[in-house]
């Protein structure tokens, strides 16, 4: 549904994106994560035809996005800052979108206005950041998009509105099979809604995988022994990290959980259990495994 092939982008002489390749399947929610300055917003601006790639191309629904009105008529975009016409009233910008997008759905719009209460007579310049984001989400979902691209849509929103916005996005995917690409610094939030994750760092995609695979590849084992942690476990090549509190040890394992479990069992542990890891923990440990220090990848 969304395919980026060999994309390079320079800004002010610096290479911001370097040979980016991503693939987002129809109906999936793809989370784009990475530290500040990694190139997330630049990549998203290339996806929605704000920026033109210096090399490579962006294919959406089988067609190049460049100046493509057919694709853009079903492409929804919510940016981190809402650059809506400040002198327009809410109802005027709604009218503008209604006339611009051929698949505008009035029923959907009316439904959403009941959820997101916005004063139609208020000028956009007088709306708060949260209100502007709500308006942008309302407009974007009313155009009946089959591709939604969201650049940190929940940053600066209060928890209630954040939950509302995320629910709307999830509903959109389940009802209309919309393909979503969303970037956020809040990995907990992404973990709840995404099925695929792409990690970008210094303009390069470091990995792309389903959350399911990521979670099964990196696991945490909680173990306790009568005595010290045996040396051959400490030296096991499949172990990414060991954290110890008293006699309880938490061991992060990459890829080969069974081998490590067998190794531990040989030493008769008094406690042995596997714990699910959060996306944030996986992200940090995975990056550690890729040779990036925690400081480099701090979100």
């Amino acid at each position: 549904m969304i395919k980026v092939e060999g994309l390079d982008k320079y800004l002010g002489g610096d290479k911001i994106l370097d040979d980016i390749n991503i693939h987002v399947k129809k109906g999936s929610i793809y989370g784009l994560i990475g530290p500040n300055g990694a190139g997330k917003t630049t990549l998203i601006k290339n996806l929605v035809d704000i920026y033109e790639p210096d090399k490579g191309e962006v294919i959406i629904r089988g067609e190049n996005i460049k100046d493509n009105t057919k694709i853009k008529s079903r492409l929804g975009y919510v940016s981190d800052f809402q650059y809506l016409y400040p002198s327009f009233k809410v109802r005027e910008i709604v009218k503008f979108y209604k006339e611009a997008y051929p698949f505008w759905n009035e029923d959907r719009y009316n439904q959403l206005t009941k959820l997101l209460k916005l004063d139609g007579n208020k000028k956009i310049k007088y709306l708060s950041k949260g209100m502007k984001t709500q308006l942008a989400v309302l407009l974007t979902l009313s155009i009946m998009p089959n591709v939604l691209i969201l650049d940190e849509p929940t940053s600066g929103l209060d928890p209630v509105v954040k939950r509302k916005v995320l629910n709307l996005i999830v509903d959109e995917v389940s009802v209309s099979e919309t393909t979503v690409l969303i970037s956020s610094h809040n990995l907990g939030e992404l973990e709840q809604i995404c099925d695929h994750i792409g990690i970008i760092h210094e303009g390069k995609i470091l990995l792309e995988d389903s959350i399911e695979n990521l979670k099964s590849n990196v696991r945490k084992i909680q173990v306790a022994f009568k005595g010290e942690l045996p040396d051959d476990i400490k030296k096991n090549e499949h172990i990414l990290k060991i954290e110890s509190i008293g006699r309880i040890h938490q061991i992060v394992v990459k890829d080969n959980l069974e081998i490590v479990m067998e190794e531990i069992k040989k030493h008769n542990p008094i406690l042995l259990e596997t714990i699910d890891m959060s996306l944030e923990e996986i992200f940090v440990y995975k990056m550690g495994g890729e040779g990036y220090g925690f400081a480099d990848i701090a979100l």
Partner: peptide, 12 residues
């Protein structure tokens, strides 16, 4: 005001 960015993502 960067509103040209919004326009370029719309079907024009």
């Amino acid at each position: 005001k960067k509103t040209l960015e919004v326009l370029s993502t719309m079907p024009f």
